[in-house]
Design a protein around this nucleic acid. Sequence first.
DNA 1: CATGAATGAGAGTTCATTCAT
DNA 2: TATGAATGAACTCTCATTCAT
Lengths: 206, 206, 206, 206
Amino acid sequence: MAGRDYRSSVRERHAQDTRRTILDAAAALFAERGYARTSVAAVAEAAGVAVNTVYTSVGGKPALVTALTEDGARDEEAVEAARAVTECADVRAVVRLVAEGTGSVQRRRQRILAILLDNRTADQDVAAAADLAVRATRTRLDIAAGRLVEIGGLRAGLDRERIGQILWFYFGFESWRTMWSFGWSLEQAAGWLAEQAESALVEARP
Amino acid sequence: MAGRDYRSSVRERHAQDTRRTILDAAAALFAERGYARTSVAAVAEAAGVAVNTVYTSVGGKPALVTALTEDGARDEEAVEAARAVTECADVRAVVRLVAEGTGSVQRRRQRILAILLDNRTADQDVAAAADLAVRATRTRLDIAAGRLVEIGGLRAGLDRERIGQILWFYFGFESWRTMWSFGWSLEQAAGWLAEQAESALVEARP
Amino acid sequence: MAGRDYRSSVRERHAQDTRRTILDAAAALFAERGYARTSVAAVAEAAGVAVNTVYTSVGGKPALVTALTEDGARDEEAVEAARAVTECADVRAVVRLVAEGTGSVQRRRQRILAILLDNRTADQDVAAAADLAVRATRTRLDIAAGRLVEIGGLRAGLDRERIGQILWFYFGFESWRTMWSFGWSLEQAAGWLAEQAESALVEARP
Amino acid sequence: MAGRDYRSSVRERHAQDTRRTILDAAAALFAERGYARTSVAAVAEAAGVAVNTVYTSVGGKPALVTALTEDGARDEEAVEAARAVTECADVRAVVRLVAEGTGSVQRRRQRILAILLDNRTADQDVAAAADLAVRATRTRLDIAAGRLVEIGGLRAGLDRERIGQILWFYFGFESWRTMWSFGWSLEQAAGWLAEQAESALVEARP
DNA sequence: CATGAATGAGAGTTCATTCAT
DNA sequence: TATGAATGAACTCTCATTCAT
């Protein structure tokens, strides 16, 4: 059994490489032509492997999306940002944190998020993955909304649900996508969105 | 328009009915299951006609989307709203007009716009139709941006392009979709968006 | 609507022809090469139609077997033979009737029965169709067994179940297949089997 | 036989175990789901080995059947029974011997015979193995038929070929399978079949 | 004008099998 | 010897589309 220890090194590493190549090719094609119009054969060709290697090393077509999604699922930055929010006692600072946190994460996951969002209707699995991503982010924003309520100093008439909606409006997926489509930098976008969100949420200073 | 007057024969009216039924069925299915996962056969069945009738009375699958799009293309309300903007001399009033105009139009065209946007990647024709719709609206917003520059009284550092972007951010397709997703009424949404856009664009009153 | 009456004659007849040709080709190939090793493409080619005409005019691969089976399902001869048995009051005559009835039916359905029996394990639908056929015949034989009990004059120790088994042994599918494999004629086989069954069932004449 | 004696090394014995495990798994799956619907991967999984081990230790998929068949090919009981027949001078005793001999062998080889018979059409190798088995048994029965002719005392009109057919009818594979399907014990079945065969072959006692 | 029948193209997937380790 | 990775070859089936009626 000597040859079966946990570091089958060469072979396993090679397999991981193959998988990576396939995933990259898939992401590129899904982004370029969309999920429905991208065939498994095309992915295989782009990755330079046989069609069925896609099946043996990743799984079917839906599995490609799933695997792509899981790549960045364990997003520690998002978790860290969420924690920072709960430790912050200033309303404006919370909004800035949210802006920077969501912006940074979504900048990084831009490609996969676009794939998920743009191909929701093409496949049930894609739709499920997209919903999952949306829900995760909205949940985090709702938590931030709760924190804002705790801190207080907001404009009148804003309950937690409403704040969550406003946060999603400004820091949700579509908002950031619009920013990137304008060609704004992360800092520029985060700054502008934070400013706008503040004016929507925080009581005007006397 | 000559052929579509009130003297259309019975057969022709019947044909128009068939076409209408098919388009409605298509819209419903595209909205529910997405373009890629909706087969022409399914549309035909939902409309209660033979598969080929879809071809003879509308055209192929892409033609369904095109036809659906043209349904509301001759949007006189949008034209009228655009004209009103050019005759208005008050910055805040212009923003309100834009809010009400875009909101009303997009409320009405909600379904088809969602289909267009959600199925961009599924088909080239859909993508083209979506781009057309986007471009038309952005163009109108850019005209409004020009009018705002003419009137003056805006915050410092805002050029025409930037204003156009901000208007698109607040009154573009995704913004309104987010509003509808929140369940806000047209008035509520238009009011809130206008307020936000004002604070982003207009110099704070002393 | 004149053209849509119940005798769309030409087109429909042509469609029926196509279907028949496909079914015949399928039966021949299934018999020759077996279900598993016969591809739909092969059936299509043998029938001289496009692959997908098989799908539109019959259904999938399992549907081919189902359709083939239903060809002779409405077997009036079997029903008639069963009725004759219930009206017969002589034990030996009943056995003869059963021999002739089953033999004639199975001679005629020889090909499809062989396909069903030989490809049970290849496909679930085939297995289901085979079971159905077996059950139908066994049920008829069990009814005949009941009749024999009613009439009486059988060897000691034979209950209805046992008689049903003996009838199935002599007049079941495998028995007849063995007969055909010997090259015996229907009359020869029916005569011999009846004689054997009699000696197994009927009390020896003093 | 040199390599298979009691001095086989540990490794070799281990290899034999693996092979045995694989063959058992294969037999179980072939019996349960049929040859065509059983994948090599399924066999490997059931045996708890890698797919390729099936290839290295047994051979391809057809080789599984072949190996299974050879398991009981060297059937000394059948040989012995055949010899006993040639030494027996009583017609009825011969029939009994044949009944007991074939029944016992086929009881033991029941599983593999069912696999062979039920999957004839699924694969050429299976068909060949099945034919081989059939031919072997028929040959033995034909020899017994010859012996019966030698002894004499049979019903009029029975030549050697006819007797061979009758023996095959009563003591062939399908006959015994039917017996097992009835749930009859070996003794019960052998007794009944022998009795029937006697009445078919032997001149009635005055 | 609307239809049923038929088609060609292509997709996803499974399978038996081999290679390098 | 046994293995995981990778492959090539089919196969079933769906779909958008056209033809003759």
